[in-house]
Amino acid sequence: MRALNSILRRNSSSILIRAITKHSRSSFCTDNVDGLSNSRVKIFDRDLKRKQRDRAAWLARLDDSFISSVADNLLDRLEDCKKSFPTALCLGGSLKATRHLLRGQGGVEKLIMMDTSIDMVKSCKDAEKDMPDQNVETSFFVGDEEFLPVKESSLDLVISCLGLHWTNDLPGAMIQSRLALKPDGLFLAAILGGETLKELRIACTVAQMEREGGISPRLSPLAQVRDAGNLLTRAGFNLPGVDVDEYTVKYENALQLIEHLRAMGETNALVQRNNILKRETALATAAVYQSMFGAEDGTIPATFQVIFMTGWKEHPSQPKAKSRGSATVSFQDLQKQFGSEN
């Protein structure tokens, strides 16, 4: 009753509330129309990416060997940890494959799956009953990696399999993941690296130069390997680890490659993209791809560089570098200590 009273009373001051809501509306909107937070660089169109992922939810196949091997490789890292991770959050990207391949690795009891696309989350939820490992309690929600709606220190593990390279603010997303982790929690991510689709990049450039006399960004900029380590340190993770794997996928033709990219939801989502792709240019790109990179058996290879990142949230039990000047033995004496054996 009291609440109702306050609601009624608040009606009289609705102008004030409206003024405040107007302010809060601009601050929560991801679209910076009014330029309030101009400092944030906007490279990717997150709304478009969401739609592309909606489409990918319908196109994706569970037997996608590239996705499966990346997810398998990522989850394999959990085997190397002595620790178990009861509560895990799986950020966007290839959710289904991650769920499918999580066969009790890391002792995950509760798996929370998140994506920006509701269709993707729904299809994961529908596929839940067909999953091999039924001991895991799963929950689902729709969220944005850039605005992670997870309570501080509530997770043991954050996995992201091929999703984070579409975030505008990758350090921010990683910092939020770190905050969501419990102390000694693990952050495990696979992102596509700069060498990815280098053949397509070249083919697009050559074909566009030839047909249109200029180029427009067709492929998104991706993180380089050296950036990955910096990102982990910048996000405040301890014991950062980065390693790279290159996968070469063979396709019958360039159009099949594009179909695969669509099914993965990895198509162009740059803000500055060119909305028009002429049929002629598209076909020219396919032809250039075939002639420049085509193998003898008629297939075309496409390179995918995957950067795997691991980082731990700080905890007193983790090894730490000693402070400067705390050494008691000189480096010169090392020779005396160990050198005599040689």
């Binding site: 608040r10 809060s24 920006t116 989350v121």
Partner: peptide, 22 residues
């Protein structure tokens, strides 16, 4: 369908009721 949608853009501003913003 039991899936919370917590993307900022999905949120709706409560105009006059239920908000303690004031």
């Amino acid at each position: 369908d039991g899936i919370p949608c917590l993307v900022p853009k999905d949120g709706k501003i409560l105009e006059d009721e239920g908000s303690s913003i004031s």
